[in-house]
Design a protein around this nucleic acid. Structure first.
Lengths: 125, 125
DNA sequence: ATACAATGTAGAGTAAACTCTATGTCAAGA
DNA sequence: TCTTGACATAGAGTTTACTCTACATTGTAT
């Protein structure tokens, strides 16, 4: 199936302007029809979902663009792309570990507040 | 102990400009000496470490500023501050869960690449 | 045939969070 | 005394990732 930019925007939840911006930045290159309108495919959908995943895990646009270029170059770049993903997984692991450490501290702080509120209530009896 | 902005910058790893910016944005309010120089205290250090934690877990500066205002107002705002932290913990839990889901997908993708590279190597024997 | 909604491009504007520059003050060492 | 270095303020500049505006063109329904 092929999708207009308006429909593709709804499919992906990304906003027409954002889709055009991503194309301008070299992340995605949809086909064009005879009237120069963009025609997004199911492959584009799969690809944009992956882009969203990379973004949501903290990869900057420029790096995604680089990945996109490798992808466009086909099989010869397979191992380089995998290398990128392995490194990104490493960063993601660290990110998750740090957030979990932050969560523990935040839990402690909340516990502190619970006690403090209790204490203040008792003081003002 | 009291610290100059230069020393405090090294203590916190935050950059002199950033510390002044945080003060301007209402996150922190260090004392001043007779020559109008900033004097950061150990309390300021503890506080800035907490600010860093909030930031690293995705809380925007404006919201941290609001927390700082409540904090400056003392005991009457204890429960409101705790409420903020409880909500933030909720957001953090969701953030961690999403990253973990992303990680699973990324692992799958890397596994796919591993197989694909293997397949391409065998094809070109 | 005509209106109007969707799309096209180019470029300007926005928001967040810094980061830097210009200019001035002030205390301490050579 | 003179110079140097840390600090002060005000405001400009940067980066990232959008988001919007202006204006032209095209496809569709009346």
């Amino acid at each position: 199936m092929e999708y207009s930019i308006g429909y593709f925007s709804k499919l992906t939840g990304l906003g027409i302007h954002t889709l055009r911006y991503y194309e301008h930045e070299g992340l995605i290159a949809p086909e064009r029809n005879s009237s120069n309108r963009r025609c997004y495919s199911d492959k584009d959908f799969t690809w944009i979902e992956f882009i969203k995943r990379l973004k949501d895990t903290g990869m900057p646009i420029k790096e995604i663009k680089h990945y996109a270029e490798l992808r466009a170059a086909g099989n010869p770049t397979l191992s380089e792309r995998m290398e990128m993903l392995v490194q990104h997984r490493q960063a993601l692991d660290e990110q998750i570990a740090q957030l979990q450490a932050h969560k523990i501290k935040l839990d402690e702080k909340i516990e502190f507040y619970r006690n403090e509120i209790e204490r203040v209530n008792n003081t003002n009896l």
